[in-house]
Nucleic acid binder design. Structure first.
Lengths: 125, 125
DNA sequence: GCAACGTATGAACTACTGTTCATACGTTCA
DNA sequence: TGAACGTATGAACAGTAGTTCATACGTTGC
């Protein structure tokens, strides 16, 4: 059943699948919507030069907001907003020492994502 | 020299670095702006549920536009636009067989990015 | 050649994102 | 307690992104 995609979506191909078996196989392997949504949020957060630089810096050293701001030449406010995004995605953790907030990467996955990512873009000429 | 960040940026901390040695160390390790820009573009492309689903599907099987459209329930036009983004970032390659365009992941890095990413989001409750 | 089909693409609209500005909060120290 | 400082946050603005719609291109088969 349902071997034809009779306008399930407005502009979808109005014809049969080109290779239904393949499609069914992939369909079973697809990740649940929540996982996809969460992953797209994760990549979205990393899809910004400032946040990448922050994350990468924090993968090397634990740093406070002020030092990040000076290091990157970005306003304290912008850094703080960026850190909030990273925090919400649980990419960074922080501890407070008096009035100073020290941030660091929370996750070894993230460091690997950055490494793999840099490797990819550095390989393409 | 320049141990103080005397308003190099409007809103940067107007004080000395909290830990200059650490900052200098990280500064030397930072990636060049082009690499950061390219990586942020890469993540930006992956920061969309539709494109993640497309990329993930293509990591399992080579598929044509029509089948992707039916598989995901997304219009042919939207799929084609998404594929263009993925193509521009060299994440997918394609071959044409008559009027049918078959797409597949171009890069094992990307599959690893998706895997690591899914692992990250699936671990957080 | 022409109709049908798979795919690509540009324009337009809406929705979202990142920065800045102003300001508030909490801590330290005199 | 009050001033100075590090940090957080909300509002507002400008730039950007994703979808849809319409249409164009190239291929196939009649």
């Amino acid at each position: 059943m349902a071997s034809r995609a009779t306008q399930s979506v407005s502009d979808a191909c109005e014809v049969e699948f080109v290779d239904e078996k393949k499609v069914r196989r992939v369909e079973r392997a697809m990740k649940p919507p929540e996982a996809v949504a969460a992953l797209s949020e994760l990549f979205k957060v990393l899809g910004d030069p400032t946040r990448i630089r922050i994350a990468y810096a924090l993968s090397r050293e634990e740093l406070c907001v002020c030092d990040i701001s000076n290091l990157l030449g970005v306003s304290q406010s912008a850094v703080s907003h960026s850190l909030r995004s990273l925090r919400q995605m649980k990419l960074v953790r922080f501890r407070k020492e008096g009035k100073i907030a020290y941030y660091a990467l929370d996750d070894e996955h993230v460091a690997r994502l950055l490494e793999d990512g840099f490797r990819h873009v550095e390989e393409s000429p």
